[in-house]
Design a protein around this nucleic acid. Structure first.
Length: 268
DNA sequence: AATAACCCCAACCGCGGCTTG
DNA sequence: ACAAGCCGCGGTTGGGGTTAT
């Protein structure tokens, strides 16, 4: 009955990944994809459990990741999405290309949360801290916050966030869009997301996946049919290279990604 | 210079939903 | 139908790095 055990708990390594382990993981996934996380460690010669490999790949190694702090616009988007859907980090991350749920969660807990509290905003309800969360009063009367955050707060506080997963939309999204109207091209993607009225119904639904992110947008699906364009030879092996992807107005290739987060150290 | 306090984030843990046999 | 296991998600933590004293 049932499946085989996921992994042999005995002899499974824990803790920080070494460069050597990363190299093995990258080499294996680039050559074979990650069709099955359970089998991957053994096939790749890693003494890790599949879960750990998946985490390492999705949160750190994945070539489409953007490193570094979240931009101001990304931060605003996170705040607004959080006001709508709460701690659905994976869904929030699906709207920030190159960002992981773990990264956003960390950023929320270490930066945004504190920032909101400092501004007198409850990071859970997105209401002013001294105001009854159920109240529909205009928060502007009871709270003074910075322009950026107050805009977000205003938008979220004029909305009924219900626990059953439905919400009554109003002009809040366009409010934010107005604010973003002065953004440069790099930020248009984000403002478009704000402006996407269908987006929030997408988020509420179970249909939402990461299918719209650049990563799973076919170009980076190493588990499937991807790397269709070119190959590059390295250390006697052919590594597939994806088509350039446009993120925030910049054309990226797999090599760019690798260089950006240091995979060149592995010999790519 | 030493050390205490704080910050940050990679990685682990546990749970729920889904899949498999 | 059901038990066992996988996968993905959100919460939490440990330790390295940084700043303050």
């Amino acid at each position: 009955m049932g499946r085989q055990p996921c992994c042999d708990k005995l002899g499974v390594k824990k803790g920080p990944w070494t460069t050597e382990e990363d190299k093995k993981l990258i080499n294996f996934i680039l050559n074979n994809g990650h069709c099955c996380w359970r089998a991957l460690p053994k096939l790749a010669g890693l003494r890790r459990c599949g879960k750990s490999c998946r985490l390492r790949w999705t949160n750190y190694i994945r070539p489409d990741l953007r490193r570094g702090l979240l931009s101001h616009e990304e931060e605003q988007l996170v705040i607004d999405l959080h006001a709508h859907i709460g701690n659905k980090w994976s869904k929030i991350a699906s709207r920030l290309p190159g960002r992981t749920d773990n990264e956003i969660k960390n950023h929320w807990n270490t930066h945004i949360k504190k920032k909101l509290v400092k501004m007198g905003i409850d990071p859970v309800t997105h209401q002013p801290l001294n105001q009854d969360p159920n109240s529909t009063d205009n928060p502007k009367n009871s709270c003074s916050v910075s322009d950026d955050i107050s805009m977000v707060t205003k938008s979220s506080s004029t909305k009924n966030i219900e626990t059953n997963g439905t919400t009554t939309e109003d002009e809040s999204i366009s409010t934010i869009t107005d604010q973003n109207s002065s953004m440069d091209n790099d930020n248009h993607q984000l403002s478009n997301i704000y402006n996407d009225e269908e987006f929030f119904s997408y988020l509420w639904s179970d249909e939402s996946t990461k299918a719209e992110t650049p990563w799973s947008d076919s170009n980076y699906d190493v588990g499937g049919t991807l790397y269709h364009d070119n190959n590059v030879s390295c250390a006697g092996a052919d590594f597939p290279i994806c088509s350039p992807e446009r993120i925030n107005g910049v054309d990226w290739t797999f090599q760019d990604y690798c260089q950006d987060f240091g995979v060149h150290d592995f010999g790519f």
